[in-house]
């Protein structure tokens, strides 16, 4: 069933790409607006992020002080930046593993999504990323401002570092939704994905460096973390934005993020293709 003329009808790869970009751009904007609709929730999230931020800052700075002013390559300024930046990203990078798509697969309404002449994976990711980008305004920027004003956090301001930092943040957000999509898409087989979602939440937060930077892990645990995409969700963007990692090392870190985005996208694409053949919607 074709609900609207497919992009390929107007001919040419360029036309198809333009149409794809237009549709996904609109989905991104609609997600952004949807985020803007829930102001109370955004404010509540900000308060939670701030309280946890103060707790993290105090214990991590105490650890740096106890370590003689240095802890695994972090001095006081660097660890303060780490704590506040991780809180600032928390509203946008999905470490909880939850998406609406999981519910839609469970109750069968994903069948409607599959009828649309759009790829479910790219369409839902565009919408979720839009919503996540909105969250940077009420939850990201105020926390960065608080970290700078109250916490004495310093951030690099030269344009190339700043641009690479923003790119790294964007990649982290996109990667988080591509990964959470994999959790949701497993519902094509298991229907109920809550158990996997909780597992994802526990593992991703720890290995992304939510409470303790991954670089402080013992070497075997550090190696284990690096074998997963999770450090690319927090540790890497924080390192790049704060300028702790710069130059070629920063470019390399962003390159690793790009590779994980490509891998997560490919796996999600395969899961979607296999899953739509597997999907069984009950009732009628």
């Amino acid at each position: 069933m074709r609900l609207s003329p497919g992009p390929q009808r107007r001919g040419g790869v360029a036309g198809a790409t333009r149409a794809w970009l237009r549709v996904h751009g609109r989905l991104l904007v609609s997600g952004f607006r949807r985020g803007a609709a829930y102001r109370g929730a955004a404010l509540g999230g900000l308060v939670a992020n701030v309280v946890f931020g103060f707790l993290k800052v105090s214990v991590l700075t105490a650890a740096v002080a106890a370590g003689g002013g240095e802890l695994g390559g972090y001095d006081e300024a660097a660890i303060i930046a780490y704590a506040w930046l991780s809180q600032a990203l928390l509203g946008s990078v999905n470490l909880f593993g939850r998406t609406d798509l999981a519910d839609r697969i469970k109750d069968g309404s994903v069948a409607v999504d599959l009828l649309r002449p759009l790829d479910v994976q790219t369409a839902t990711t565009a919408q979720e990323v839009g919503r996540a980008l909105f969250q940077l305004l009420p939850r990201g920027l105020p926390i960065i401002a608080l970290g700078v004003l109250a916490g004495g956090m310093r951030l690099p301001t030269d344009p190339p570092t700043l641009a690479l930092g923003l790119l790294s943040v964007l990649l982290a957000i996109v990667l988080s939704y591509l990964l959470v999509y994999l959790v949701a898409a497993s519902g094509f087989w298991t229907v109920e994905t809550r158990g996997l979602q909780v597992l994802y939440m526990i593992v991703s937060g720890f290995l992304a460096g939510l409470f303790v930077p991954v670089t402080l892990f013992p070497s075997w645990l550090y190696a284990l973390a690096l074998a997963t995409p999770f450090p690319s969700l927090l540790q890497v963007p924080i390192d790049v934005v704060s300028g702790r990692v710069d130059g070629a090392a920063a470019l390399g870190a962003v390159g690793v993020q790009v590779a994980w985005v490509a891998a997560a996208f490919a796996v999600g694409h395969l899961l979607t293709r296999a899953g739509r053949r597997r999907l069984e919607v009950q009732g009628g």
């Binding site: 109370g40 509540g44 999230g45 308060v47 939670a48 309280v51 103060f54 707790l55 105090s58 214990v59």
Partner: peptide, 28 residues
């Protein structure tokens, strides 16, 4: 709608309870 605001105190409290409170600043 803003239930996360109280979660900050309840679940933040859980996290805070496991910390040595001597490291806290004045607001905490």
């Amino acid at each position: 709608d803003a239930s996360e605001m109280t979660n900050a105190v309840v679940y933040g409290g859980r996290y805070a309870a496991t910390q040595p409170a001597s490291v806290w600043g004045k607001p905490l």
